[in-house]
Design a protein around this nucleic acid. Structure first.
Lengths: 216, 216
DNA sequence: CGCAACACGTGAAAC
DNA sequence: TGTTTCACGTGTTGC
């Protein structure tokens, strides 16, 4: 039977080629397996066979290297089988496609910047958008000394960061705040310690801050 | 020449699966290859073997379908061999990466346009950094394809912003995320689309990102 | 004739 | 335990 006791498998799970040296040695050395000069009627059987076998090995090796490289350019993932590597690559490409589409729209909207400091709410479809697209802004009072701000935006690349910065710049006395991102929406809720009469003023402040941030 | 009588090979060159019917017939029919009733000692040899062989067939078929799908999402080229499909996909992803990088730079340049004259609202350069103090970091899996990150920090001046930026920089596939600040704590919860096996790796990534951010 | 690309069945190894 | 993934050598087909 075949001896081949040694282990040469390259390892997709542990990320790197395991024992590359050994694999290489195996590959280089093992090609002329049959150097038994049986010299039978065989014309060049072993010679031809060895070439074919080497070609096939090389082909497989190449393809595997390519798959390995493919995985390395796809972020997020670090393991998995051949099939999943390709699958994840597909998903990733599609994700990039969509992202590019969004960014493209965002940029074209940015260039045709119209400062919309007037509208209180209202921004209906995903058509009209600026860096921060406010879908809804509600400022209400909860008791005498607490004001609740509820803000809904469409989710863009840096929306959460900007929202945080924006509220931070207002220097409010924040009791508690919360941001949730899901689907294509970002929802921010802030509990502010302030007199209920400041409610409307606070709303204007927020609108102004957003407008300023978008016009920057 | 173009006789192609019993052709079953699926054709990567001409783009579509050639003679899919015939291939299918071949696949379906040929499984119980050995129904030679030699009635040899065979206990379950053929039975077990046929399972293995069918599994292998299915695995290969799956992988080929995936490769085919991969090629379909990569624009530009259409045809070529397996290896080139993967290679083109890699090139394309890298091209998209670079494009994204450019766009990102362009956008940040656009955003940091004006300013400098007389900013009433926006804080000038509040570049003071207060490190992120991690109180608890829990990364767990929820099902096979979802990983939940739960991170608790102490609340400092820019903690929320930094947390958002940090997660954004990781380029994860985020299903939904949430930040809540209350009292002197900030709690961030993120649902990430990732294999459960990536759990530990993801935790390390987050820890590293936070450490790097604090060292700035 | 060879060369390149492929599908196939098989045994080994990992989970 | 068995299921799944893999590399391998081989036969076949089109250039």
């Amino acid at each position: 039977m075949e001896n081949l006791s040694d282990e040469y498998t390259l390892d997709w799970e542990t990320n790197t080629f395991l024992q590359a040296e050994e694999l290489q040695r195996y590959l280089d050395e093992a090609i002329p397996t049959h150097n038994d000069s049986s010299s039978q009627d065989g014309t060049q059987s072993s010679l031809m066979a060895n070439k074919s076998i080497a070609s096939e090995r090389n082909r497989r090796k190449k393809l595997n290297e390519r798959l390995y490289a493919l995985r390395s350019v796809v972020p997020n993932i670090t393991k998995m089988h051949k099939e999943s590597i390709v699958k994840d690559a597909i998903d990733y490409i599609q994700k990039l496609h969509e992202e590019e589409r969004k960014i493209q729209a965002e940029i074209s909207d940015l260039e045709s910047a119209g400062s919309s400091s007037k509208s209180t709410i209202s921004s209906p479809p995903p058509k009209r958008s600026s860096p921060i697209e406010v879908l809804e802004l509600r400022v209400s009072s909860m008791g005498e000394k607490t004001v609740v701000v509820s803000l809904t935006c469409s989710k863009r690349s840096n929306t959460m960061v900007k929202l945080c910065e924006m509220f931070e710049s207002l220097n409010l006395e924040i009791i508690s705040e919360n941001i949730t991102a899901f689907s294509d929406r970002v929802l921010k809720t802030v509990f502010v310690q302030a007199d209920e009469k400041e409610k409307d003023l606070l709303k204007i402040k927020i609108e102004t801050a957003i407008a300023a941030l978008n016009a920057a």
